[in-house]
Write a protein that binds this DNA or RNA. Sequence first.
DNA 1: CCAGACGTTGTT
DNA 2: GTCTGG
DNA 3: CCAGACGTTGTT
DNA 4: GTCTGG
Length: 226
Amino acid sequence: MCGRFTLTVSPEELQAAFPNFHIPVDLPPSYNIAPSQPIPVIPNDNSNNLDFYHWGLIPSWTKVEKLGKFNLINARSETAAEKPSFKNSLKRRRCLILADGFYEWSKSISGKGKTPYYFTMKDQKPFAFAGLWEIWNSPEGDPLKSACILTITPNELVKPIHDRMPVILAPEDYDTWLDPVENKADVFQPLLRSFPAELMQTYPVSAYVNSPTNNSPQCIQASSFL
DNA sequence: CCAGACGTTGTT
DNA sequence: GTCTGG
DNA sequence: CCAGACGTTGTT
DNA sequence: GTCTGG
């Protein structure tokens, strides 16, 4: 799955990788983006703007007293089209979620505890997860925008660590994914696939990243012992 | 018909 | 809002 | 995803 | 064990 990721590149590097979108110039690096935090989203609303949405999809029909009861940080791409929580978003509210790395936790060899692994592109360039977004209107009338990350079966690099991985879109698919028209499923379903393993790399990191309050380069430092 | 759920992950 | 279960 | 709390009463 | 918060 994908329950933690990073966006550490400079705004200039991010802008270079996403030339068709407006990237804020004051983007601080994040080494440990966790659920419930604001995540960098480019929604299919024709704005072409990077914005920050709450991580954890909140369906529009969610009742106030059930807020936080759902933990929709991911959606299975294989089944999202049939799920009440996701189907409308998949039809009409897709987004890019910008990142330059993500973490997956693996059971350690000893069987005790879990080891976090950090995944990036070999060229260290930023990339985009396929995401869904929603607007939830509070009784007070404050619209809350939220988002989640689609998952898929892992590629050969991720498979030894975990049985799911986030969907990473090919750059040539950004426009299709962000088309604001109500696409038919057969247009975007083929985009939801495992990213090529040969373009990615991974290494274990220390448990420092486990605490969501830690946000420093130490999070992505290679672990000294395997 | 109405009531109640609506999700993924990992773990057992 | 929409689907499932009773 | 993991970490950390998980409770009430009375007092400040 | 389970829920909440980051």
